[in-house]
Amino acid sequence: MWWVYALLSALFAALVAIFAKVGMKGVDSDLATAIRTVVILFVAWGIAYFRGATNGIQLLTRNNLIFLGLSGVATGLSWIFYFRALQLGKVAQVASVDKLSVALAIVFSVVFLGEALTIKTAIGALCIIGGTLILVL
C-alpha cells in the first residue's frame, strides 16, 4: 500500500512545479513560498484534526520534536530554493535536478540510518544521477 501513497506523492509533486511556475509570474519566489506554506499549514492541520491525529500531540518526545523541527527547517529551505530555481529555470530541468534528492536520500539512509544498500537500489540511484547529468548538461 505504501507505493500508492508514493505514487500520489509523485503526482502532486509534479503538479507543484506546474502550478508554481504559472502562479509565480511576476511574484517574488520567497513570497510565493510563504503563501504556499500558509496554505499547507491549514491543509495539514485540518487533515490531522479531522483524522484525530492531534490527540497524540502530548505523546511527542523531545527527540520527536527536535527531528520533526529539523525536518521542517529542511523542508522550508528546500521549498525556498525550489521556487527560486523554478522562477529562473525550466520546469523539466528544475524538477529533474530536484529528484536528485532520491539518490541523496538513498545515500543518507545507508550512512545515517544503517539501511542496507542493495544492488537494485544502487543501480536505481546511479540511473537517477546519470539522468540528471544528461538533463543538466
Results as ranks from 00 to 15, higher is better:
L8C: 14
L8P: 08
L8T: 11
L8H: 03
A10P: 06
A10R: 04
L11K: 02
A14N: 10
L15T: 09
L15H: 03
L15Q: 12
V16E: 13
A17Y: 06
I18S: 10
I18T: 02
F19Y: 09
F19W: 07
F19C: 05
A20R: 06
K21F: 03
G23P: 00
G23W: 00
G26I: 00
V27L: 06
S29I: 01
S29H: 11
D30G: 02
D30S: 14
L31P: 02
A32L: 09
A34C: 01
A34T: 11
I35C: 02
I35S: 03
T37E: 02
T37W: 04
V39L: 15
I40S: 14
I40R: 08
I40L: 15
I40T: 13
I40W: 11
F42A: 09
A44H: 11
W45M: 15
G46R: 01
G46W: 06
I47W: 05
I47G: 09
A48M: 15
A48F: 15
A48D: 04
A48L: 14
Y49W: 14
Y49C: 08
F50S: 13
F50M: 09
R51D: 05
R51M: 07
G52A: 03
G52E: 01
G52C: 00
A53W: 10
A53H: 12
A53D: 15
T54C: 03
T54Y: 05
N55S: 09
N55C: 02
I57K: 05
I57M: 14
I57P: 03
Q58M: 09
Q58P: 00
L59S: 15
T61E: 01
T61V: 01
R62L: 14
N63D: 15
N63L: 10
N63C: 11
L65Q: 08
L65S: 13
L65R: 13
F67M: 13
F67N: 09
L68P: 03
G69I: 02
G69Y: 06
G69C: 01
L70S: 08
L70T: 03
L70K: 08
S71C: 13
S71E: 08
G72H: 08
V73N: 10
A74I: 13
T75M: 14
L77G: 14
W79R: 05
W79V: 10
W79S: 12
I80V: 14
I80N: 09
F81I: 04
F81Q: 04
Y82L: 15
F83R: 07
R84H: 12
A85L: 02
L86C: 07
L86G: 05
Q87E: 14
Q87V: 00
L88Q: 09
G89K: 00
G89T: 11
K90M: 11
V91Q: 06
A92E: 12
Q93A: 12
Q93W: 09
V94Y: 07
A95G: 07
S96V: 15
S96G: 15
S96F: 10
V97F: 11
K99Q: 15
K99I: 12
L100K: 04
S101C: 08
S101R: 07
A103R: 03
L104K: 12
A105E: 04
A105G: 05
V107N: 04
V107H: 05
V107E: 04
V107W: 04
V110K: 01
F112G: 04
F112N: 05
G114R: 09
G114T: 08
G114F: 02
G114H: 07
E115H: 03
